[in-house]
Amino acid sequence: MSAQAGPAGLPLVSRASHSDVDATRLVRAKGYPYRRPSSSFLYVDGTAHTFRDNTWRGPHGLEALQLTAPSGAIASGAAVLAGAGVAEGWAPTQQWTPVLAIGSNAGPGQLARKYPPDLFPHGVVVPVVRSVLTGFDVVYAPLITSYGSCSATLEAAPGTDVELFVTFLTPALLQRMHETEGAYLLCRLSSICLHLGTSLESHRDSAPCAGRMTTVYQYNHQAGCLHVLLGPQGAASPVALQEIRALGRRLPALPQMGMQRANLNDEAARKARVDALIARAKPFSYARSEVLQALGSLYAHNVA
């Protein structure tokens, strides 16, 4: 990449470099909800070490997990934690909060953006457990994020089983996650049926899962979910994220590129579009959801 000389011989950033930056931002915007492993994984300082879904025994059992690194190397959880320098002083009995990861928070790349080494110099450990939630679907929020993506929220959907992930977060990691969830509500969902440590296929075949939960925490958009497409009865409907797998899906679904518009460089235009989307939104319809905290404003610049 070449750069022209400016005053006093100082280099000027070339147009090509601007194009490269815009291309990188566009890839991020279009890539939501981002790539994630096809199984449960232990995120340790930027690396996703996978493990078999049904071997999950809770945060107290991390050291006993058999983990597979991206290179294919297999090691125990104890060895991985020790090798990363986070084993000493690490207490599996500390407080861990289960939080649904319905969209980007299940992606190792997004976790790396949210938990950078400069903020967490002593290491980051996040168990991310593949699971199936019955009676819900992952749908588009009435939001265009500051990084250009059309983001996700949860909606009740009787008859649908959706595959998502559960992150287990220590208090410091949970607080940081709150800081990155602008325009969302921290909610506690109760009376749910969450099959922990399983895949959609295993759930379909009634294979044993690692366990079940009836209460979990979740980030839901402050304005609910977007209602724009015509549903089967001709009424406005939520729109499911096609990239998120589900059984018995009854909602219309679109991929990210089917919902997205370019919103990276014009903040005023992004806010105007958010206003238009919110006008077509409806609140989260699950009655057993308790709002615990509002996180940021509708126009927040999401941290990650």
Score class of each variant (00 low, 15 high):
6 G>Q: 01
6 G>Y: 00
20 D>L: 14
23 A>I: 10
25 R>T: 07
27 V>D: 15
30 K>M: 14
35 R>S: 13
41 F>G: 05
42 L>A: 06
42 L>E: 11
45 D>C: 12
48 A>Q: 04
54 N>L: 01
56 W>N: 05
57 R>H: 12
61 G>N: 14
63 E>C: 14
64 A>P: 01
66 Q>D: 12
75 A>D: 07
77 G>M: 07
79 A>R: 06
88 E>T: 12
91 A>W: 09
92 P>M: 06
94 Q>L: 06
94 Q>I: 00
95 Q>P: 03
101 A>N: 01
104 S>A: 14
111 L>T: 00
116 P>A: 03
118 D>Q: 11
122 H>Y: 04
123 G>N: 11
126 V>I: 15
128 V>K: 09
132 V>Y: 07
132 V>E: 10
137 D>Q: 06
138 V>K: 09
139 V>K: 07
141 A>M: 08
147 Y>H: 13
150 C>A: 12
150 C>V: 15
161 D>G: 04
173 L>A: 11
174 L>S: 04
174 L>W: 04
176 R>D: 01
177 M>A: 14
179 E>V: 04
186 L>Q: 08
187 C>Q: 10
187 C>E: 03
187 C>T: 15
190 S>Q: 04
190 S>L: 05
203 H>G: 05
203 H>C: 04
208 P>A: 09
209 C>Q: 10
212 R>Q: 14
216 V>G: 04
216 V>P: 00
219 Y>K: 05
223 A>S: 13
229 L>A: 14
230 L>C: 09
231 G>R: 10
235 A>Q: 15
238 P>H: 07
239 V>F: 08
241 L>I: 08
243 E>L: 06
251 L>T: 02
259 M>C: 09
267 E>H: 07
269 A>C: 13
271 K>M: 08
271 K>N: 06
272 A>R: 14
280 R>G: 14
304 A>R: 01
